[in-house]
């Protein structure tokens, strides 16, 4: 076993998690390895400092706050379930609306003057644009052509 393996054993030894055979093996190695002895010392120091930290008294408000909170009825399962579905669904709808709105805004090209679209729109302002079904009917009923209109 190399020193890295022994250092892992040192960590377990400090936690009292080493069996007798492993402990004996480690002790033999520590007698001949300065680097691992320094590791034992530095790891041991971290454990000692942590153990020496003060156990602080908790604030007196904890017990009354907890007892007050558990007195409040927990929301019914179907309310919690509904919220789990409703909130993401609402978020999805808003996102989809933004995506569609963004797409329409980006792809919309306003008609320019003289465009075919503009001409068609103007034609449809006419009650019977030339060549339309209505125009033919009017011509038939009046017995005339374009030049007569």
């Amino acid at each position: 076993m190399d020193c890295d393996g022994f250092r892992k054993m040192i960590s377990r030894r400090l936690d009292g998690e080493l069996g007798d055979a492993e402990l004996e093996k480690l002790e033999r190695h520590l007698k001949v390895c300065d680097a691992c002895r320094r590791c034992l010392e530095s790891f041991g120091e971290t454990v000692s400092i942590h153990k020496s930290l003060i156990e602080v008294s908790p604030p007196p408000s904890i017990v009354p706050s907890v007892m007050a909170a558990i007195e409040e009825p927990e929301p019914a399962w179907w309310v919690r379930g509904w919220l789990k579905v409703a909130v993401p669904a609402a978020a999805l709808i808003v996102l989809l609306g933004l995506q569609v709105g963004g797409f329409l805004t980006e792809t919309f090209v306003p008609p320019q003057q003289g465009d075919e679209v503009a001409v068609i729109e103007l034609e449809y302002l006419d009650e019977y644009p030339p060549g339309s079904f209505g125009d033919v009917l009017v011509m038939a009923s009046e017995g005339g052509g374009d030049e007569e209109r």
Binding site: E55, V56, S57, P58, I62, V63, V66, M67
Partner: peptide, 14 residues
């Protein structure tokens, strides 16, 4: 439950 909170609050808080 209150007894449980009182017993463990210090350990949990720390």
């Amino acid at each position: 439950f209150r007894s449980l909170v009182e017993r463990h609050q210090q350990s949990v808080y720390n």
